[in-house]
Amino acid sequence: MNVKPHTANLTEEQEDELAVLFPVLEQTGSHGLTLFIGNRVAAENPVLLQAKNITSTMNLAVNIEIAPLSLPDGTRVRRTHIGLIDGPGNTPEHLLAAAFAISGIVEQESPGKPHYPAHRRGNLLVHCRGGRSRSATAIALYLHMYHADRFETIEAAVDHVRRARGLDTTQPQPAMLEMARAACGMIAAFRRRDAF
């Protein structure tokens, strides 16, 4: 099991009390942002987010609401929420929506308007409660869809996320992985249709 040193001997419950934050991919999208995976505690820590230049977060937990947050420099963190169930009960379309949303956040120009809260472009944190299953699966699907030159298969993308996050093969949960494979099948079917 490849687990980061500071969380290696902790149970999931103990780890969920700490701010967990790991870079998964640097230089993604046309703005060259870094994509992070983490947990709820990290998403609620303005000092940590500012230190990593994270100005947007995406919450994939259906059972967790994240409050608005400003960084110490006054930047308002842009929050996106796509609630997934941790295990069976989701649809491939819902997971695809999360992967498409990651791409949208990464590519967004982030214009300011007088009636918008103060914001600036920065890195993205994708999280759920613990950052082990829902967020790991959505990030892996994003990597496979948008960085297929590096992650030709969903399995290669999942392996990369596991290494970056320090997960063993029990995470992401099997139902999430099955849904990711189904989503990849849907993408392949759409591509075949477009070829005609």
Rank of each mutant, 00 (worst) to 15 (best):
Asn2Leu: 11
Val3Cys: 07
Lys4Ser: 11
His6Glu: 06
Asn9Lys: 08
Thr11Arg: 00
Glu12His: 09
Gln14Ser: 09
Glu15Cys: 00
Glu15Thr: 03
Asp16Gly: 05
Glu17Gly: 10
Leu18His: 01
Leu18Thr: 03
Phe22His: 02
Glu26His: 09
Gln27Pro: 02
Thr28Asn: 11
Thr28Gly: 06
Ser30Glu: 10
His31Thr: 12
Thr34Cys: 01
Gly38Val: 01
Val41Cys: 04
Ala43Leu: 01
Glu44Val: 03
Asn45Thr: 03
Leu49Pro: 03
Asn53Ile: 05
Thr55Tyr: 08
Thr55Asn: 12
Ser56Pro: 04
Leu60Pro: 08
Leu60His: 05
Leu60Phe: 05
Ala61Trp: 06
Val62Glu: 10
Asn63Ser: 15
Leu71Ile: 08
Gly74Gln: 03
Gly74Lys: 07
Thr75Val: 14
Thr75Glu: 08
Thr75Ile: 12
Arg78Asp: 07
Thr80Ala: 14
His81Cys: 12
His81Val: 13
Ile85Glu: 15
Gly87Tyr: 12
Pro88Thr: 04
Thr91Asn: 13
Pro92Ile: 12
Glu93Ile: 13
His94Met: 15
Leu95Ile: 06
Leu96Ala: 06
Leu96Arg: 11
Ala98Asn: 15
Ala98Thr: 08
Ala99Gly: 08
Ile102Arg: 02
Val106Trp: 00
Glu107Phe: 05
Ser110Leu: 11
Pro111Leu: 10
Gly112Glu: 08
Pro114Phe: 07
Tyr116Phe: 14
His119Glu: 14
Arg120Leu: 12
Gly122Ile: 08
Asn123Trp: 01
Leu125Trp: 06
Leu125Lys: 02
Leu125Asn: 00
Val126Ala: 08
His127Asp: 05
His127Ala: 01
Cys128Ile: 01
Cys128Ser: 15
Gly131Asp: 02
Gly131Ser: 01
Ser133Ala: 02
Ile139Ala: 04
Ala140Tyr: 03
Leu141Gly: 06
Tyr142Cys: 05
Leu143Asp: 04
Leu143Gly: 01
Tyr146Pro: 12
Ala148Ser: 14
Ile154Gly: 06
Glu155Tyr: 13
Val158Ile: 15
Ala164Lys: 05
Ala164Thr: 02
Ala164His: 01
Arg165Ala: 04
Gly166Ile: 01
Leu167Thr: 03
Leu167Ala: 05
Asp168Trp: 08
Asp168Tyr: 11
Thr169Gly: 04
Thr170Ile: 11
Gln171Gly: 07
Gln171Pro: 00
Met179Asp: 13
Ala182Leu: 12
Gly185Ser: 13
Ala188Phe: 13
Arg191Phe: 14
Ala195His: 07
Phe196Glu: 10
